[in-house]
Nucleic acid binder design. Structure first.
Lengths: 110, 110
DNA sequence: CATTCAAGCCTAGTGTTGCTAGGTATAGCT
DNA sequence: AGCTATACCTAGCAACACTAGGCTTGAATG
């Protein structure tokens, strides 16, 4: 629900890369996937997702192509590049390291 | 070591409140405590800590006083206010919720 | 005593980034 | 024709950790 909006900073890229994973998803589907897979913890606005996807594509971690589905309008679908897959692995480790550090600090008994 | 500096955003306040806890610490000591208690994960620069302490005091979560130790120069020591203690409790829960959400997303098997 | 160094505090400015608030276009349904 | 959901986009904003400096004081070193 009301997740303090600053918390996500620095972790959104990992979330996006992990959400796409081995699939090829378009922006709207990514937003829905994040909402459902996070158990409702995260409900990210389009103004967060789209610029981030462009950033990741520019950085070479994602590649996009336009797809015309049988029904509905055209969509831009994103998939990980090789660099993106490698980056995801690193970011997963980075997250574990970061979360472990925070856990140590928050759990520390004076 | 080289923790991507954006990751901490939105979590620093919780770290500071938890690090001070029931003690009364000054800035330098807080930096050292964070470094040691986090197992070296975090080594935060002064330019991060001091403005954050001021912010938290202005927000009423910390109270400071100047202390003259037996040896050495005067220090500004910080302690939690009642509001600060309450906020720490909330932020611990907020962190668990946030970290749980990220875990779900990063661990999700496509 | 002079000097050097560490302890200790501070702040102006920067860069990144997620979000707000708007906009556009298309397909399906009534 | 009009409405709604899907789907995409972007300019500007606000927050915040960090960089890169500066200042002061006490202790140690020669």
């Amino acid at each position: 629900m009301g997740m303090s909006s600053e918390m996500l900073k620095g972790h959104l890229d990992a979330v996006l890369l992990a959400t796409i994973g081995d699939a090829a998803l378009h922006g709207y589907a990514i937003i829905e996937a994040i909402r459902t897979r996070s158990g409702g913890h995260f409900d990210l606005p389009e103004g967060t997702i789209y610029p981030a996807l462009h950033r990741l594509e520019l950085a070479g971690l994602l590649a996009s192509r336009w797809v015309q589905p049988e029904s509905g309008r055209k969509r831009r679908v994103y998939a990980l590049t090789d660099t993106g897959r490698q980056s995801l692995t690193e970011r997963r480790a980075g997250w574990r390291s970061f979360a472990g550090g925070i856990d140590m600090l928050l759990d520390a008994r004076a």
